[in-house]
Structure formats: C-alpha cells, structure tokens
C-alpha cells in the first residue's frame, strides 16, 4: 500500500508525495489556482527535487491516464480469473495505422476482443468496429495466450 503524504504549503497550495520502493520521493504540487507540478526527488539528497515539471490540466490528465492504463489491465486480470489481458501497441506504420478496428478482423482471426483503446492518455472503452486506429494507440485486449500472441503479430504485420 502506497502511503501518500499531504503537506500544506501556506500561501502556495499543497504537496502530495510518497516514497517509492527505490527510495525516490515522487509527488505533485497543486497550486491554489489549480496548476500542478510533478516533482521527483534526487537520489543523493531525498529532501530536494531533481526536477519539478509544471503541467497544464490537460497534460496532468494525459499523464494520469498513461500511468493508469496498465492499472486498468491489472484490474481486468484481477476481476476475471483464467482470462488473459494484454496491452498491445499499434506501432506507427503498422498495416492498420489509419484503418478501422473492423479491418483487423481480430475477433474472427484470433478470438481476441478489444475492450478499450488508449490514445494520447485517453481511454476509449468498448470501441466499435468503425473505430479508426492510429499509430501509437494501445489496444487493451482479452483472450487466450495463443490468441493474444497471434493478435500482436496481426497488428504488426497484417
């Protein structure tokens, strides 16, 4: 269980951070006007930050979804015993970059279902067959082990 520490910064906002297993302090400063900043502590001096990166609300949301996507996969795995879930990347230049999900015919060829597509940090749940795929998308898929391996191959080579 991660122990998030909340520290008020009078006149500025709040700092919320936790110490990772490797001993790095990772957290977010939320300013009173709603801006946020990602902070990561230095290795040799955990009191200070190696960087503090200002994020717009959109960027913060994107980062949260990027980090949240594997979490989604893990959650699916937990909920359904015996079902394999995998996050398959659609690399730019793949035969299906710019074509619809229906064109891949994943369901009929590999018996794998696409339950969600993660694009630029946003999760698109239950995509329809006419969902347009693009390079850099991540497909959250459910199926057998062999099916998933085959599906990865299909996405890469057509």
């Amino acid at each position: 269980m991660v122990n998030v520490e909340v520290t008020p910064l009078p006149g500025i906002g709040t700092r919320q951070d936790f110490v990772s297993r490797q001993g790095r302090r990772i957290g977010v400063i939320t300013y009173r006007d709603g801006r946020s900043e990602l902070i990561v502590s230095r290795v040799d001096d955990p009191d200070t930050c190696t960087s503090s990166i200002p994020l717009t609300p959109d960027e913060a949301g994107a980062l949260a979804s990027l980090l949240g996507a594997p979490q989604l996969v893990a959650q699916l795995q937990d909920e359904l015993d015996g079902v394999n879930t995998k996050q398959l990347p659609l690399v730019p230049g793949s035969p299906y970059d710019g074509r619809t999900l229906g064109d891949t015919a994943l369901r009929s060829r590999t018996a794998v279902s696409v339950v969600a597509v993660v694009r630029a940090g946003t999760v698109h749940p239950s995509p329809r067959p006419d969902f347009m795929l693009g390079g850099g998308d991540a497909l959250i898929t459910v199926g057998t082990k062999e099916g998933l391996a085959k599906a990865a191959d299909v996405l890469n080579h057509g």
Partner: peptide
C-alpha cells in the same frame, strides 16, 4: 529555484507565516 517540492520548504513557509 524549483524548491517548492523540497522537504524543507514547508519549514521555511511556516516560519514566514
């Protein structure tokens, strides 16, 4: 100086308060 995330910063701020 990017020190708002530092652990000593709340100490400084509370002295200012």
């Amino acid at each position: 100086l990017g020190r708002l995330g530092n652990r000593e910063t709340p100490v400084i701020l509370s002295i200012l308060v």
